[in-house]
Amino acid sequence: MRPLELIARKAQSFRSQVFVTRGSNRVDAKSLLHLLTLGAEPGMELEIDATGEDASQAVEQLTELIGSEFEGFERP
């Protein structure tokens, strides 16, 4: 569950609403359950968008997180 868990936790740290889209499926990035329903796998393309006061930071940091392939975010 790790990468999705990290996405959800990161998304939860913003006040904005944050969404992750795969194909036609757009879900709440703060919901681990919903992220799971994306059926996302390594190598797939995901889109991120957000609305709210800290929307741009949210998109930026989440993109960075996913782009890094979660490097350095894994706890030991």
């Binding site: 790790r2 868990e5 936790r9 703060k30 919901s31 681990l32 359950l33 919903h34 706890r75």
Partner: peptide, 16 residues
Amino acid sequence: AAIFSAHLLLARDQQL
């Protein structure tokens, strides 16, 4: 322990 932290995330899921 990480298994349970993921469970906690599920239990507190706002959508749920």
